[in-house]
Simulated assay, not measured.
Amino acid sequence: MKAFSVNPSRAKPIDREGQEQAALMREIELRFPEAYALIYHVPNGGHRLKAVDAKLKAQGVKAGIPDLVLPMARGGYFGLYIEFKATVEPAAVSPSQRDYLRRLNEQGYLAIVCRGHFDAMEQLRAYLLLPATVAA
């Protein structure tokens, strides 16, 4: 009988960033239920068929959109956007992500990069401690 091995180049990649972000969402749900009720993930990334990619772009999908959005106004900001990067196998912030964060900041949002679960929780906690932004 032949022994068989798995070719490591064909192994299914592990989504470390997705795993860390899911853990982050579980902790937000436990520690900050009011924020959890509003925060959402923008599923902009991933690999798709070209036809699906074209359809989604036509519907408004854009490169560089941050991963998480919290539409709670605090500290003079209109809301919080987080570009989430894993601590394991950290990825660089792409030029389109950097540009989008800059544009959001110019519009009065707090748009930041968080490297891992701990960093994101610290930034979220600090943001939630800011006084509510009052609309005039």
Rank of each mutant, 00 (worst) to 15 (best):
L68Y: 02
E106N: 05
M25V: 10
A126F: 07
L101E: 02
D53Q: 15
P33M: 07
Y127W: 10
I82T: 07
Q59I: 09
P95Q: 10
L110G: 01
P95S: 10
A23M: 05
A91W: 05
A136S: 11
L129V: 09
C114W: 04
Y40A: 14
R48M: 09
P131C: 09
L124A: 04
E20R: 00
V134F: 05
R74N: 05
A11Y: 05
A136H: 12
P66T: 08
F84H: 10
V61Q: 03
A23H: 02
A135Y: 12
A58Q: 14
E17R: 11
L30F: 12
K85H: 03
R74E: 05
T87K: 15
A23D: 04
I14V: 15
E34T: 00
H41V: 12
R102L: 15
S94N: 02
D119H: 15
A35I: 00
K85G: 05
V52F: 08
A91T: 13
L49S: 07
Q123C: 00
V52E: 11
Y77A: 12
I39T: 06
P131D: 04
G76P: 08
A22T: 15
K2D: 12
E122P: 00
L56D: 01
L104W: 02
S5F: 15
A58F: 10
A11C: 10
I39K: 07
A91G: 10
A37Y: 00
Q107R: 11
Q123A: 05
N105I: 00
Q97S: 13
G46Q: 13
E29L: 06
M72C: 06
I39H: 06
E29K: 11
P131I: 07
R48E: 07
L68T: 03
Y81A: 14
L24W: 01
R26K: 15
R115C: 03
A91E: 13
Q19I: 14
G76H: 04
Y127Q: 08
M25F: 13
S9K: 15
Y81E: 13
I28D: 01
T87E: 13
E34Q: 01
I82A: 09
Q59V: 09
V113T: 10
A23P: 00
L124C: 04
G46N: 14
V52A: 09
D15V: 03
A73G: 05
D67H: 12
R98P: 07
A51W: 08
P13V: 01
P33G: 02
S96W: 01
S94G: 06
L38N: 02
A73H: 05
F4G: 06
F118Y: 06
E83N: 09
S96D: 10
S96V: 06
L104Q: 09
A22G: 14
K50W: 07
